[in-house]
Design a protein around this nucleic acid. Structure first.
Length: 296
DNA sequence: ACCTGCGAGAGCGTTCCACA
DNA sequence: TGTGGAACGCTCTCGCAGGT
């Protein structure tokens, strides 16, 4: 798996909507091997085992070598290229889901700061190997759990490493503890009726002060965050044919399907059923035009 | 089963200001 | 610097009616 040859694995563990592993692999790149400039519709982390190369975003160019990595954000133009003299060997992991952004933020990565250093090459290799081995399992349910577990391990290794050498802002000051508690509370209570006032009481703050703290740290108000979190969850749930629109609405905290449809359309420009039909059309296209193992 | 339009009330964010 | 009270305007939520 991780020798000089490369193998590519594509997965379809659709049962975990919080964090979904798309594909992963390892490649010893030929000199000058490049990708982009282009967009991706998911998160993708590259980790460099050896050699050198360049990663470019819209604002920055990074020269990277072994022990470093970079995160490509969805819908952000980027490109990368292996060095002509000393091309890199890297592993990549592509993922998506409602928790993906949260994981990126916890790894102290951002669109402005997408590069990290991680000295745990062996552990990273082990995680990639686990993903590959899990993908070979026959039973879909246990395979999906193991794929997600391997992805979580991979992200945890990066979080640990980045967190240990970072000079950026972390959730450890008094204010940020409040913010992280608000985030956690939202993510565990989004499916039931959730009042900002109650949340403020829970934290022992006034609604006004809590909102200002949250907005200062996250950039949007608590209500907006809950709103976006619910609708992103709904989008994932709508991809499941077995759930009716009413059930999806109820699952993400909207006890009124009518209100849910209205909010969904306001946010995404189409009704929940239109969104679902679009997703099915996309899946039909993919089934007809692609084949396993060719995504990188 | 699902979507749209409308109106009313409740909840929320923001601003200004004050206090410890 | 951290916190909160009052007030105001905006947005969300809810309920109803009607259409596809």
């Amino acid at each position: 798996m991780l020798g000089n040859d490369y193998k590519i694995s594509t997965y379809s563990n659709s049962s975990n909507i919080d964090l979904k592993l798309f594909y992963s692999g390892t490649q010893q790149c030929p000199p000058g091997h490049s990708w982009g400039p282009a967009l991706k519709d998911h998160y993708k982390i590259h980790y460099i085992h050896s050699g050198k190369g360049i990663f470019r975003t819209i604002n920055q160019t990074y020269t990277l070598s072994s022990g470093q990595g970079f995160l490509i954000y969805p819908d952000q133009i980027s490109s990368y290229a292996a060095d002509e003299a000393d091309p890199w060997t890297y592993s990549w992991v592509a993922f998506q889901g409602a928790s993906a952004e949260y994981c990126a933020a916890n790894a102290i990565l951002s669109v402005e700061q997408p590069v990290f250093t991680c000295e745990q090459d062996d552990v990273i290799r082990s995680c990639i190997r686990q993903m590959y081995e899990a993908s070979q399992l026959i039973h879909a349910s246990s395979r999906d759990l193991r794929l997600t577990a391997a992805l979580c391990s991979f992200l945890a290794v990066i979080m640990d490493s980045v967190g240990s050498n970072v000079q950026f802002k972390r959730f450890d000051s008094g204010k940020d503890v409040y913010v992280s508690r608000i985030l956690a509370y939202t993510e565990t209570n989004y499916s039931r009726s959730l009042r900002i006032e109650d949340l403020a009481n829970e934290l022992g703050l006034t609604r006004k002060y809590m909102s200002s703290l949250f907005k200062e740290a996250v950039g949007i108000s608590p209500q907006q965050y809950v709103f976006q979190y619910r609708l992103n969850k709904a989008r994932e749930l709508l991809k499941k044919a077995s759930l009716s629109i009413r059930e999806v609405a109820y699952s993400v905290g909207y006890h009124d399907q009518l209100l849910f449809s209205r909010m969904f359309k306001k946010t995404f420009g189409m009704s929940p059923s239109e969104y679902r039909n679009n997703e099915y059309d996309k899946m039909d296209l993919l089934k007809g035009n692609t084949h396993e193992g060719t995504r990188e």
